[in-house]
Each structure stands twice: as structure tokens, then as C-alpha cells.
Design a protein around this nucleic acid. Structure first.
Length: 291
DNA sequence: AATGTAGTCAACCGCAGGCAT
DNA sequence: CATGCCTGCGGTTGACTACAT
């Protein structure tokens, strides 16, 4: 490419670049109103706009969409971002789906400025500490539960043939180890059993992931943990994961949540490298307090 | 008041996956 | 089945703004 890098150059190969003018915005908005989203490459032909399809899409998605929420990221949103990032890593678009009105670009920028430079805000640190503590506690109590269950199975083996009795609320997909569920959560926090939502999250993750490594299990635990750290986020998660579609509680997460959450495989390295989880000091204060 | 630095935001680029031909 | 196009995603860059010195 020739010419200086940056917004100085206004036209390359016939395409305008750099900041959008209000006129261009208007053209694009009118076009979308008439034709709907998509077919971005035809925008220039139909409107005369000298912008590439890519550029049009970006402008619409990140700036012109009417359902965008303006203003600063709230502490609640921040916590959700932290938690979802712990769960999904740099899948900004996936995270954005759980934050109605926020764009992946916005979240990405927010993350980079607030977190990537090693100077997380108080909110983030708190959320992170909460998150990690929950996880720690859950892992512990899970072990206890496993022991108890093992012991219990030996005793109950005779009297309970079908074994469904004291189970966690969910019933589907009992094929994998279902001890990751409510009992653990109850122990950890003395809160009511997790909403089915969180279980669905775990199952969604399981279904998407297919195989179950130890790491996958941890991720699913995290999803459950999030339910009581942040009840909203879990419901939102469902949207992101495509588990809840239309109906349900959905006052948030409008239409964009319907698409698939395709790749279930989560490589821990992706986000593990971003967080040095060992470096966090949890001060033992009430971990279960909601924000 | 002027200058330097950090933070924020908008936009671009390259890549990958999905789909139509 | 192979190829090309379109779309979406994540990373990166650069301009602008706010704050500190």
C-alpha cells in the first residue's frame, strides 16, 4: 500500500476512509431502514456511499445501531465483562451478546484500557477476587460432596434402585458427572440453589464442548459460580450460548442473541495467559456479597 | 499557561468460516 | 469438490481528550 498510514488519506481504490461524516451516516441509516442489515457490499451501489461493505457494517454495528447503549460501562457491566472474559477469553462478540447495547469493539477497548495494562480497577479486582474465591470454595466443597456421595451411594445402593431421589433439579443429560450442581453451590454460599439457568449454562457448555476434560469441568463450575455472584450474567449467558431463545426472561439481550454459540472448545491458554490467576490475593472478606 | 502522558474511542486490517456457484 | 465472495471476528492503530507536571 502506498501513502501514509492513518486517517490522512481519504480515498484508496475509490473507497473513502477515515472518520464518517453525518451525511454518510444518514445515508447508511436510511439504507438499513429500507433494506435491513446485511448485504453490506451492496450498500455502496445502492446509496452511492464511497465506503466498503466492511466499513459500512462496522459503522452500523459500532455506532449507528439504534439499540446501542451510550455512556460509560457500569460497575455491573464491568463485573459481567470480567466474569465472561474469565469464561470465554477474548471472544468479544460473544461477551457483547450478553451485554445488551454494548458492542464487541466497546468491550474490547474497555478491557484493553482497564485491564490489559496490568492496572485493573477496584471493581475488576473485587469481581475477580470474588470469582476466584467462589471457585476455590466450590472445588473444595465439590470434593467433600464427592466423598459424601461415594459414601452415600454405598449406603443407599440397596434402597434406591433408580437413584433419582435427592438429585439436583436438572434432569437432562445425566450421562456426565452431575455432582457439579446445586449442592456445591449451596455449600459455598448458603444461598438458594442455583437457578436452572446456571445448570443450563453448564450443560450448554458441555454440549458445545463435547468432551470433558478437567478444565472443561472447571469452566462449567465457573458458569455456575457466576449465577450467584451475578444472577443476571447467568441469564445473559444463556442468551450468549443460545440456550434461551425468545420468551423466557429476556427483557434484555434483544434479537442479537439468537444465533449460535458455535465453538464450545475452550482452550484455557487463551485467557489463562491474560490473567495470572495465582497472583490474586483474596482477603477472606464476605465473598458472597453481591455488588 | 504550556507541555507531556495516559486514557478513550473510532476505524482499519488481516484472517477465518460459511455459503453460493 | 473447488473456488470465490461475503460476513464476522479479533487485533491493532491513530486521533482526540483529559489529566498531571
Amino acid at each position: 500500500m502506498e501513502g501514509p498510514i492513518g486517517w490522512g488519506r481519504q480515498e484508496v481504490d475509490g473507497w473513502r476512509k477515515g472518520p464518517w461524516t453525518s451525511q454518510e451516516d444518514k445515508l447508511l441509516v436510511d439504507h438499513v431502514r429500507q433494506h435491513g442489515e446485511g448485504r453490506w457490499n451492496s450498500v455502496s451501489k445502492l446509496t452511492g456511499l464511497k465506503r466498503s461493505g466492511k466499513s459500512c457494517r462496522l459503522r452500523w454495528v459500532n455506532y449507528l445501531r439504534p439499540d446501542l447503549k451510550r455512556g460509560k460501562i457500569t460497575p455491573q457491566e464491568e463485573s459481567i465483562i470480567v466474569q465472561l472474559h474469565a469464561l470465554w477469553g477474548n471472544r468479544w462478540s460473544t461477551i457483547a451478546r450478553s451485554l445488551p447495547g454494548r458492542t464487541d469493539n466497546e468491550i474490547k477497548n474497555y478491557w484493553r484500557t482497564h485491564f490489559k495494562k496490568g492496572k485493573p480497577s477496584k471493581n475488576i479486582e473485587r469481581a475477580r477476587a470474588r470469582f476466584l474465591k467462589q471457585r476455590q470454595e466450590m472445588q473444595q466443597s465439590q470434593k467433600q460432596q464427592q466423598m459424601l456421595q461415594l459414601a452415600g451411594q454405598v449406603v443407599a445402593k440397596d434402597e434406591n434402585e433408580d437413584g433419582g431421589g435427592a438429585r439436583a433439579p436438572w434432569t437432562a443429560a445425566d450421562d456426565d458427572d452431575d455432582d457439579r450442581g446445586s449442592a456445591v453451590v449451596d455449600d459455598a454460599c448458603a444461598l438458594p440453589a442455583p437457578a436452572p439457568a446456571s445448570l443450563a449454562v453448564a450443560e450448554a457448555a458441555a454440549a458445545a464442548g463435547g468432551q470433558h476434560h478437567h478444565e472443561d469441568d472447571l469452566i462449567m463450575h465457573d458458569a455456575i459460580a457466576m449465577d450467584f455472584m451475578c444472577p443476571m450474567s447467568c441469564a445473559l449467558l444463556l442468551h450468549g450460548a443460545g440456550v434461551v431463545q425468545g420468551g423466557g426472561t429476556g427483557s434484555c439481550c434483544g434479537s442479537t442473541a439468537s444465533d449460535e454459540y458455535g465453538s464450545g472448545e475452550e482452550d484455557g491458554a487463551t485467557w489463562g495467559s491474560l490473567w495470572n490467576l495465582d497472583g490474586v490475593v483474596v482477603d477472606g472478606a464476605g465473598a458472597c456479597t453481591l455488588w
